[in-house]
Amino acid sequence: MTSYEFDRDWIAARIPHAGSMCLLDGVVSHDEASIRCRATSHRSDDNPLRNAGRLGAAVGVEYAAQAMAVHGAILQPPATTPSVGFLASVRGVQLHTDRLDTIDAPLEVEATRLSGNDTTILYRFSVSAEGRALLDGRAAVIISPELPGTPEVTP
């Protein structure tokens, strides 16, 4: 079992995805510009993103979006209300495989911040397994001011 600085429980408390929809197991590494996470939920028969018993490669965009959200949560000052981000667009997405559920190895999910400000962030992302590229692309995230009902996070 891998030990993470930020594990699945920490992640689930800070992103708006609960239960089996929280796809990431933990954060492998991070800095101001990037994050690398690991996930094994693609192998789970009860993965909520499965369709007709399979998990298509395009679902990897959701894994990447969750990594971006976790990156934002890590960079957020402690004891502050988390910002809410919305995936506004994805561009240049290349799928290098048809399915994720046929991949035996854990997924490595990486996101690197290319540019941004207080309202918009552009990330480059990739999902791989054992050095094999599965998908990659770019994503724009729109940051919204605090929304009513957004839970406060206690460190």
Rank of each mutant, 00 (worst) to 15 (best):
E152M: 08
I142V: 14
I142S: 10
R132Q: 13
E146I: 15
I142C: 13
A73R: 07
L87D: 05
I15M: 04
G92N: 14
L134T: 08
A18R: 07
L55W: 06
Y4N: 00
E5M: 00
H17G: 07
S128Q: 10
Q76I: 06
L122K: 03
V27C: 02
A133E: 11
R14T: 02
V109A: 04
I142P: 02
T2H: 01
G56Y: 09
P151I: 08
G72P: 00
D45G: 15
I143V: 14
G137K: 06
P155C: 05
G137S: 10
Y123T: 02
C37G: 07
P78F: 04
A12L: 00
W10R: 00
G19F: 03
L107F: 06
H42I: 10
A140T: 11
E5F: 00
L95H: 04
A133M: 13
P155A: 08
G137Y: 10
A139L: 12
A33M: 15
E62N: 09
G26M: 02
P145T: 09
A67F: 01
I11T: 01
V59T: 04
A18Q: 11
N47H: 10
A129F: 03
P48F: 11
A52W: 03
S89W: 06
H71P: 06
P148R: 10
I11V: 04
L100R: 05
R43F: 12
L75D: 08
V59C: 05
G85L: 05
R113Y: 07
P106W: 03
A105W: 07
L122F: 03
P151W: 07
D31P: 15
N51Q: 14
T150Q: 13
A12G: 04
T81I: 15
C37A: 10
P48M: 08
